[in-house]
């Protein structure tokens, strides 16, 4: 779906994107994670042909960008860095204009398309108020509706849940999952770890212009070979598991063991009471922290 090779963008002496090799497969829910200023937006803009790369190649939907970008974009729905709408027009009028501006949208069923898109993002009941009077969340939904107008094969969304309340975030997440199930590939960028963890099947991590990590979420979060055991009888458990306990923290032990079920059976058999047992997985946060060096907006003394 999206492949980039050695993608680099420099603004003057600043390198915004540095040798990125993105690889998004069809059917992915791909999350591009990175702090503000890590080059996510520039990368997204390059994918859409808004910004031209300094070096490197981009392929979206199998076609080179920016050379064939006009053949690519009709099948792509996009939201870049916040929604954009004409403030003096209503949401519906905005969508109608955007629909009319692009190719491939017949005039006859324009109304139906617009209504459908509004319905999908939960704005079916909007009135004739101008967008100027919308809340940030409503604008965000409107932007998403604009991206959905053409039933795209690929959605490229930059920070899609900005300004939404928790319920709104949940709704959008469900919508994206539903679209993805129907065959739409979703590529989204966010600086919110939890959001990506909750939605995505594949993760890329940007750090100061570089793609430092790119893998399936399942792989990243594979069991670490350790089991977390909660027990009131810590001393007995430590004695029993002699040497396999790596850490004891209050009532929780971290045990090197491949199989939680077997461990549980072993402990229970020995008469150790077990209040909780679970395979330890690395949290995405830990993965990201391991992959990145320092906060991007931190300014160190020279």
């Amino acid at each position: 779906m999206i492949v980039t090779r050695g993608l680099t963008k420099t603004y003057g002496r600043v390198t915004a994107v540095d040798g990125v090799g993105l690889d998004v497969h069809a059917g992915d829910r791909y999350g591009l994670l990175g702090p503000n200023g890590s080059g996510k937006t520039t990368l997204v803009r390059m994918l859409l042909g808004l910004v031209f790369a300094t070096r490197g190649e981009i392929e979206v939907l199998g076609l080179p960008v920016p050379r064939r970008v006009r053949d690519v974009l009709p099948s792509v729905g996009a939201m870049v860095e916040g929604p954009g709408a004409y403030p003096h027009l209503s949401g519906r009028a905005n969508l109608t204009l955007f629909d009319a501006a692009g190719p491939g949208g017949g005039r006859r069923d324009r109304r139906r398309r617009v209504d459908e898109a509004l319905d999908r993002v939960g704005l079916a009941g909007i009135d004739r108020r101008p967008v100027r009077a919308y809340s940030l969340g409503m604008r965000q939904r409107l932007g998403l509706a604009a991206a959905l107008l053409r039933r795209p094969r690929l959605l490229i969304l930059d920070e899609p849940t900005n300004g939404l309340d928790p319920r709104g975030i949940r709704e959008i997440r469900d919508l994206l999952t539903e679209l993805n199930t129907d065959g739409t590939t979703v590529f989204l960028s966010s600086h919110l770890l939890g959001e990506i963890e909750a939605l995505c099947t594949r993760v890329g991590v940007m750090d100061r212009g570089r793609l430092v990590l790119q893998d399936d979420l399942a792989t990243l979060r594979a069991p670490t070979g350790r089991v977390l055991v909660g027990t009131p009888d810590t001393d007995r458990a430590v004695a029993l598991l002699d040497g396999r306990v790596e850490r004891s923290d209050g009532g929780t032990l971290t045990v090197r063991h491949p199989d939680p079920a077997a461990l549980n059976a072993e402990l229970v058999a020995a008469g150790v009471r077990v209040s909780a047992v679970a395979a330890e997985r690395r949290s995405l946060e830990q993965v990201v922290l391991d992959a990145t060096t320092t906060s991007a907006d931190r300014v160190e003394a020279a």
Partner: peptide, 8 residues
């Protein structure tokens, strides 16, 4: 604007 890009 396009100094040193793929569209130079």
């Amino acid at each position: 604007g396009a100094g040193g890009t793929v569209v130079r």
